[in-house]
Simulated scan of single mutants.
Amino acid sequence: MSKPVLIRAGVALIFGLTTVFVQEPGTMWMKISLALYLVFSGSAMWEYLRRDPVPEAMRSPLSMAAAAWMLGTIVLFFFSTPAGVGITAGAALLLGGVAELVAGFRHRREFAPARDQLITGAVGVGSGIGLFLGSGLNQHAQLGIAGGGALILGVMMAVSGVGMYLDVRKAAQTDA
């Protein structure tokens, strides 16, 4: 179960770091980097929600999050202005964040990893709102908003994924 969490962490950290180091991104760079971030995050979420320990009822809102990111990836390429790209990515992040919050709030008591969705959902909502409010900014600033959220998300997911991995490893050693 830790693999999709760690993949999502890696995707978020790579995207976040590129937003720091690419100083003058054009609109095409903005589209491609946001599209890659959204599609790989969505793919990792699809893989995560297919895992056995994830409660069946939690899969619907998490599917909605993944679908919002995938749809956002497609819609991004219909816009040629930084504002259009930023608003589209903001909408995808906001919708995905709300879906993660719903999953987290509903299942946080019976499924401990659902508490992670409270944090990732809040980061997604914050990044989405930030992109809406910053839609008049240049590409670098908008990528900075999304990348800042991605860095927060990536660090949190990496800690969570490593914790899951170590818990599973410890349980396997205890059973043996």
Score class of each variant (00 low, 15 high):
residue 126 G to V: 05
residue 53 P to K: 00
residue 14 I to V: 15
residue 72 G to V: 06
residue 59 R to Y: 00
residue 63 S to Y: 01
residue 92 A to K: 13
residue 72 G to M: 10
residue 78 F to T: 14
residue 154 G to S: 04
residue 174 T to N: 08
residue 39 V to G: 10
residue 153 L to N: 15
residue 6 L to C: 12
residue 89 A to E: 13
residue 94 L to H: 06
residue 165 Y to V: 05
residue 55 P to H: 08
residue 146 A to Y: 08
residue 121 G to Y: 01
residue 140 H to S: 15
residue 20 V to W: 11
residue 110 E to C: 12
residue 41 S to L: 09
residue 138 N to S: 09
residue 72 G to Q: 01
residue 19 T to A: 06
residue 164 M to Y: 11
residue 61 P to Y: 00
residue 35 A to G: 06
residue 155 V to R: 01
residue 148 G to A: 12
residue 119 I to S: 02
residue 42 G to H: 07
residue 103 A to S: 01
residue 146 A to I: 07
residue 69 W to H: 02
residue 15 F to L: 02
residue 124 G to K: 05
residue 139 Q to T: 15
residue 94 L to G: 03
residue 110 E to T: 13
residue 167 D to W: 07
residue 19 T to V: 12
residue 126 G to H: 00
residue 51 R to P: 08
residue 127 S to E: 14
residue 157 M to C: 06
residue 43 S to G: 15
residue 141 A to N: 15
residue 121 G to C: 01
residue 37 Y to D: 02
residue 52 D to S: 01
residue 45 M to Q: 07
residue 51 R to E: 12
residue 117 Q to L: 03
residue 16 G to S: 01
residue 5 V to Q: 02
residue 96 G to A: 11
residue 35 A to H: 11
residue 168 V to D: 15
residue 123 V to R: 06
residue 129 I to S: 05
residue 63 S to H: 07
residue 172 A to L: 05
residue 89 A to N: 13
residue 74 I to V: 14
residue 158 A to Y: 14
residue 109 R to D: 15
residue 9 A to W: 13
residue 171 A to M: 08
residue 163 G to E: 04
residue 42 G to F: 12
residue 176 A to E: 01
residue 170 K to C: 04
residue 3 K to G: 12
residue 3 K to W: 01
residue 11 V to I: 06
residue 103 A to H: 11
residue 89 A to C: 10
residue 165 Y to F: 13
residue 158 A to F: 13
residue 22 V to I: 08
residue 166 L to M: 02
residue 100 E to V: 13
residue 74 I to S: 04
residue 42 G to I: 10
residue 169 R to I: 00
residue 165 Y to L: 14
residue 98 V to P: 15
residue 91 A to S: 15
residue 176 A to L: 14
residue 91 A to W: 08
residue 76 L to E: 04
residue 65 A to D: 11
residue 159 V to L: 08
residue 114 A to T: 05
residue 8 R to G: 07
residue 38 L to R: 00
residue 170 K to P: 10
residue 61 P to L: 07
residue 54 V to H: 03
residue 75 V to L: 08
residue 4 P to D: 05
residue 137 L to G: 13
residue 134 G to V: 12
residue 159 V to Y: 11
residue 162 V to W: 00
residue 76 L to Q: 11
residue 24 E to N: 03
residue 62 L to G: 09
residue 102 V to N: 12
residue 50 R to Q: 08
residue 126 G to C: 08
residue 154 G to I: 04
residue 158 A to H: 04
residue 61 P to H: 06
